[in-house]
Design a protein around this nucleic acid. Structure first.
Length: 891
RNA sequence: GCGAGGGUGGCUGAGCUAGGCCAAAGGCGGCGGGCUUAAGACCCGCUCCCGUAGGGGUCCCUGGGUUCGAAUCCCAGCCCUCGCACCA
């Protein structure tokens, strides 16, 4: 009994072939890459959180990277295509609490399950480089980095009002808070604010570079770069000090220094230290601050505020302007204090109207502006555009831009660039993460755990209402590394985004035990050539990783590498019936049952064929079926050929047609694979298969050509449908595995596009004629290429500048065609654009090659006349690129 | 409000960053035909309107414009999706 690789009706059985080839790849270590590989193609998919079940989004992600990795491998490149597990995080802890397991065991089970599904999909990862972030071998380096960062002052403890997720019971970084309603990125619970003392990475130190280098990152999509720009939020402005009657000098930040003459009041945020000071002696201010701090944002009126009784001196006018504490001034924007110019800022305007503060116009529209100065009424509405200064003393007439430059000097300010990016709060009051390697000593304060005592491992998990680390008394009690006295361990763990900020470096040397990664190899293998993942990480993971890379380079670990990901592709969502697939709505197609029914190849082909990777696409049963049918079709054709069921014979011009088509297909597919446009590449492949089938059905095909065609199809299909491609490769008697075969590199044949158009147009014309003339049964079709002299006329017309007829008639050879040449020349008068055309001999050759297709389609005898031997009557109607056609009806 | 990306024939989806060969690929759906005992699978053709020889008309959100020529470039408007947003 043989293996049931083929069912009775000549179709393949994916349940038999898929495991077989997966085993073969594994046995032959196809996806393994050695450490000594030089600058391999680094193809990376964002590693998953191991929830235990793969969903179609994962499948799409890995189908993309795997196809590209396989393509590159076949092109002869060394390819690094690794996979790992972002395996710390709250879901494991929740699962542990819900079903009485421990987070570690649960996580490991999930990993095993997901890995199993990945293998079922035939994804080609180098499992020798698997990285698991919850293992001490991995997270010890988080701790080691933490200490290094601490040395370099990149780790700080800061007290701030932080985001608290009541459901996750932990603080969150700003990046983890999503949407208008400020919800937790994991559980969608609205976050609360709490003043806390936490560990931070000082990402703000790198804000400038993180922002500026986005401009040069051409390999990233514009929308991601724009999202990061928004997030980092660069503001160019200036700072100036105002003396306040409290005796303080208060620093403000403004982007509109040009409007300083129009400042009619001064405003402090409720949290500003000067405001707090005033509150100590001023009950009104104290009441106000207490009120707005207790209230939600929406509850406070935007124009609310309280006069402090103090005044600030406007350095421009010398006037004393009232100081307010106002809720619309935000503590963490700029310096938390501002001078307000009601005439030129909407919020200042609203506040001034509410509190009866004068409005003083100091800018009016410039002459070239859209607005007319006489139409501007700043009492009614603020004029917020740039313009020309007025009411600004000796500076009247300056443009806003000039004024901003000048005023910095005049008012003793300084240019300043502000960013809205905040430092990265990395403390989490959770168990399942990397312990922060510090101890708190009553005498010495926070002291780092010495390097030789790393890693600080996690204690055994206990179910508790708060942070399990806090409850692990025995683990918590330790001694101070400095003074040896009793001390307590830090019980916070790190944000899991720390883990994912450098995992792409660990893949380079996953087993190294004296460093997080090998610097030499890392700087050779990095940056990642192609990174693929979801857009949801645009402002989290992708900023953190960039930050980490820069810091590690500044720690001399990356030989000048500043950016980790050269090219980024953000894949679109997989939808079903127009809606996002989500388990909560039951609107899902699960990979495992799908693979069992249709096979991994069908799923992969469908996903890559349905849409371009960055676009959303709808999963439909018809589309999946169509992909499956196509694979069966190719298999059937190849199996018939391999079994000798196709009678082969002598070749002729048909072979040239096929040969050119095969080469053109390989060339097109290669270019499209390179650009991640799998759908285009696959269309070319489908086209070739369709042609091969017609070739088999209507001629006695050449064995060589058929073999070449099928072998090309097989290899072009191999990155996308790898299992069936192996099966086809074996049927065709290819050497070794197709996964390791040579990619069919080819140049597009000369003039291919023009030829293709000629043939298509000619066939189209014949169809039209038959249809319009209502020819029931064409018996003979004559096709005549235009005479050489017409080609010549056309050529001259294209070169001639204006006097087409003159140019033609001054040509000796053409003159002998007299009237006819002149008339034909006239047709080109005024024509400025000339399509490419083949010379007459090549046009004839192209039509000759395509004769079989025409013959077959119309079931008629075909005669192709070259430019010299066409009957006069027929050739008269022909023009270059447009052969004359005569159809004779039978009967 | 600021910013980014879109609006293509029944649906989906290319093309539009290099204007002309674009009535506009492919897939799906629909119609007709072939193969088959039959079904499935597979193969072929048609699928905006008119036309008895390859022709003509209308068309790529709307309205203008540039050009000999625009789905493709420019301007205005409408609509959709996404990101940021009391940002000084």
């Amino acid at each position: 009994m043989s293996e049931p690789e083929e069912t009775d009706d000549g179709r393949f059985d994916h349940t038999a072939i898929e495991p077989k080839w997966q085993q073969a790849w594994d046995d032959q270590e196809v996806f393994r890459i050695e450490d000594d590989a030089e600058d391999p193609e680094y193809v990376l998919a964002m590693f998953p959180y191991p929830s235990g079940e793969m969903h179609m989004g994962h499948v799409r992600n890995y189908a993309i990277t795997d196809a590209y990795a396989r393509f590159k491998r076949m092109q002869g490149e060394s390819v690094l295509h690794p996979m790992g597990w972002d395996s710390f995080g709250l879901p494991a802890e929740n699962a542990a609490n819900e079903r009485d397991v421990d987070p570690r065991g649960w996580t490991m089970d999930c990993i095993a399950n997901m890995k199993d599904q990945m293998e079922l999909m035939g994804l080609g990862f180098d499992w020798d480089r698997e990285v698991t972030t919850c293992e001490p071998e991995y997270f010890q380096w988080n701790q080691w980095f933490f200490q290094q960062f601490y040395e370099e002052d990149i780790v700080e403890r800061q007290t701030a009002e932080l985001n608290w997720c009541p459901d996750c019971e932990t603080v969150l970084a700003d990046e983890n808070v999503k949407g208008d309603n400020e919800e937790c990125w994991r559980c969608d619970t609205p976050i609360e604010r709490r003043d806390m003392d936490q560990w931070f990475f000082t990402t703000t130190d790198y804000a400038e570079e993180l922002y500026d280098s986005l401009d040069e990152m051409d390999g990233w999509p514009d929308n991601v770069r724009e999202m990061q720009r928004n997030w980092i939020g660069k503001q160019e402005g200036a700072s100036v000090s105002f003396d306040v009657t409290t005796g303080d000098s208060v620093d403000i930040f403004t982007t509109r220094l040009d409007t300083i003459y129009g400042a009619t009041f001064f405003a402090l945020s409720p949290g500003h230290e000067v405001a707090q000071q005033i509150a100590e002696t001023n009950d009104d201010v104290a009441d106000y601050i207490r009120r707005v701090e207790a209230a939600d944002d929406e509850e406070v009126d935007e124009t609310s505020g309280v006069f402090t009784g103090e005044y600030a001196r406007n350095p421009a006018t010398g006037e004393e302007i009232p100081v307010y504490v106002a809720d619309y001034v935000l503590e963490d924007i700029g310096t938390g204090a501002l001078y307000a110019v009601p005439a030129h800022d909407d919020r200042d305007h609203a506040f001034a109207r509410e509190h009866d503060i004068p409005i003083e116009q100091v800018v009016e529209p410039a002459e070239d502006a859209a607005a007319d100065p006489t139409d501007i009424d700043v009492e009614e509405q603020a004029y917020t555009e740039d313009g020309v200064l007025v009411n600004s003393g000796e500076y009247d007439g300056l443009s806003s831009e000039e004024a901003r430059e000048r005023f910095v000097e005049v008012f003793d300010g300084e240019f300043r660039t502000a960013h809205s990016l905040r430092d990265w709060c990395i403390s989490r009051q959770r168990y399942w993460g990397t312990p922060i390697p510090f101890v708190e000593c009553p005498d010495c304060g926070y002291v780092p755990v010495p390097e030789e005592n790393l890693p600080v491992e996690l204690p055994e998990f206990v179910q508790t209402t708060g942070n399990p680390l806090d409850a692990a008394e025995e683990w918590k009690q330790t001694t101070c590394p400095d003074c040896g006295g009793p001390a307590e361990r830090e019980t916070d763990t790190m944000d899991t985004f720390v883990d994912s900020s450098w995992y792409f470096l660990r893949y380079v040397s996953p087993d190294l035990d004296d460093a997080p990664f090998d610097t030499g190899q890392g700087s050779d293998w990095l940056p990642v050539d192609q990174y693929v993942g979801g857009i949801e990480h645009a402002t989290m993971h992708l900023i953190y990783s960039r930050f980490f890379t820069k810091v590690l380079d500044d720690l001399d670990m990356l030989n000048g590498l500043r950016e980790p990901f050269e090219n980024l592709l953000t894949q679109g969502m997989v939808r079903k019936e127009g809606a996002a697939m989500s388990s909560s709505s039951g609107n899902v197609v699960s990979p495992r049952p799908f693979v069992e029914n249709y096979g991994a190849d069908t799923g992969r082909l469908f996903m890559l064929d349905a849409a371009q990777p960055e676009k959303d696409f709808d999963w439909t049963a018809e589309g999946a079926q169509s992909a499956h049918d196509f694979l069966q079709n190719v298999y059937g054709l190849t199996a018939d050929f391999a079994a000798g069921d196709i009678e082969t014979g002598e070749g002729g011009t048909v072979e040239d047609y096929l040969d050119r088509k095969i080469r053109a297909t390989a060339a097109m597919a290669t270019a499209e694979f390179e650009r991640f446009r799998f759908n285009h590449a696959l269309q070319a492949v489908r086209d070739l298969v369709s042609l091969l089938r017609r070739y088999v059905d209507t001629t006695e095909p050449s064995e060589d050509i058929l073999d070449d065609g099928l072998s090309t199809v097989t290899r072009l299909l191999a990155p996308v449908a790898p299992h069936i491609a192996e099966e086809l490769w074996e049927l065709l008697g290819g050497d070794g595995l197709v996964a390791e075969a040579d990619w069919p590199d080819a140049d597009k044949p000369d003039g291919y596009g023009v030829e293709r158009r000629l043939v298509e147009n000619t066939r189209e014309d014949i169809r039209d004629i038959i249809d319009v003339a209502d020819i029931a049964d064409p018996a003979r079709i004559e096709i005549a290429v235009a005479p050489a002299w017409k080609h010549r006329v056309r050529e001259l017309a294209e070169q001639a500048d204006g006097d087409v007829v003159g140019a033609v008639m001054s040509d000796d050879d053409l003159r002998q065609h007299g009237e006819a040449a002149a008339d034909f020349a006239k047709e080109f008068i005024g024509q400025e654009h000339f399509d490419d055309q083949l010379p007459p001999a090549e046009e004839t050759a192209a039509l000759d090659r395509a004769t079989w297709l025409i013959e077959r389609e119309f079931d008629a005898d075909i005669a192709v006349y070259g430019s010299d031997d066409a009957p006069e009557e027929l050739a008269r109607k022909a023009t270059p690129g447009r052969p004359a056609i005569n159809i004779e009806e039978s009967g």
